[in-house]
């Protein structure tokens, strides 16, 4: 790769080297162009930052808005209050947000664990072991990943109904955990790719010293894979945390809702005038775990990506 692109470059560069400006004229022109470029790019970035930040800031401010309706004449709220958060967490008569929040937390944590176990297992098997049907399994997983999941969700609802897992809110919670984690083994590709970079000689050395393949998995591969495990755990946690579609197809009444459905409900016509400010408060609360997880991930990457493998 490296060699190829540099030869390509050289053949392109020779043709233009003749018209290259030289001497002091060039440096003054360069400096002016550099300055213009700097100004233009900072202005551009500033504009873009406004576009990206305005909706977020707006939601944040709306969550403290005393006026609960979304349609106002001023962009930013005129009166601020902390009451929306208090009402969201204490007023449980119409919509029980704290319970939805807790339920989603339970689901996401359980899925995180199962998902991590499944992905590690399949990733290890596909990366380190050789057996019949391996390629077939990988291709099947690839094709299945393209299948529109929403259609499957409907059928899964029928299956869960047949299993009696759609009646109570506890059963729905279990059902959602099963739905999010059951197919997660098919998402092993990133993990496998990471494990592929661990030298196979480490396995061989361990097996020479008497390790079984299970020992290799537990004592050699897993410790090296830690940074990837953090990534995978966060993905496993966030999938149910952020999901809307699956939950909507399976949790059909309000006593079974997850946070995403609750927030969505607050924006429906009959609620929005009373609930928009509380929706914004809920949105802020939902975003906090995500922000925390991202910061954790970043820290972990920086501290542990170096020096794990010495082939």
């Amino acid at each position: 790769m490296t060699a190829r692109s540099s030869t390509v470059l050289r053949s392109g560069a020779t043709s233009t080297s003749a018209i290259r400006p030289s001497g002091p004229a060039r440096s003054a022109g360069m400096r002016r162009r550099q300055l213009v470029g700097d100004v233009v790019s900072h202005v551009f970035l500033g504009l873009m930052a406004v576009i990206w930040l305005v909706p977020i800031v707006w939601v944040l401010l709306e969550s403290f808005n005393k006026n609960t309706a979304p349609y106002t004449t001023t962009f930013f709220p005129t009166q601020y209050t902390f009451g929306n958060y208090v009402k969201l967490m204490t007023d449980r008569s119409v919509m029980n947000f704290p319970v939805m929040f807790g339920r989603t937390l339970v689901i996401a944590s359980a899925v995180c664990v199962i998902n991590l176990f499944f992905v590690l297992s399949v990733g290890f098997v596909m990366s380190r072991l050789r057996f019949r049907m391996r390629r077939a399994f990988m291709n099947t997983a690839l094709i299945l990943g393209m299948f529109p999941g929403i259609m499957a969700v409907l059928v899964i609802y029928f299956i869960l109904k047949a299993l009696g897992l759609t009646e109570s809110s506890t059963a729905t919670t279990v059902a959602l955990i099963i739905v999010y984690s059951a197919g997660s083994g098919a998402g092993f590709y990133v993990m496998k790719g990471f494990m592929d970079t661990i030298p196979i000689s480490m396995d061989e050395a361990a097996m020479l010293d008497g390790c079984t393949r299970w020992n290799v998995f537990g004592r050699i591969i897993l410790p090296i894979t830690k940074p990837m495990m953090v990534y995978q755990a966060i993905v496993g946690f966030l999938t149910p945390w952020l999901d809307f579609v699956m939950a909507r197809a399976i949790a059909r009444t309000q006593d079974k809702y997850t946070v995403s459905l609750g927030l969505w409900q607050m924006l429906q016509k009959e609620y929005i005038a009373q609930w928009f400010a509380r929706f914004a408060a809920g949105a802020v609360l939902v975003s906090i775990p995500i922000a925390v997880l991202f910061i954790v991930m970043q820290r972990f990457y920086q501290s542990s990506m170096t020096g794990s493998v010495k082939g």
Binding site: V125, F137, L144, A152, A182, G183, S184, G185, A186
Partner: peptide
């Protein structure tokens, strides 16, 4: 290692 993930994929996918 593959048994449970495969079972999940077969039944729910």
């Amino acid at each position: 290692l593959l048994s449970l993930p495969t079972l999940g994929i077969v039944v729910f996918t």
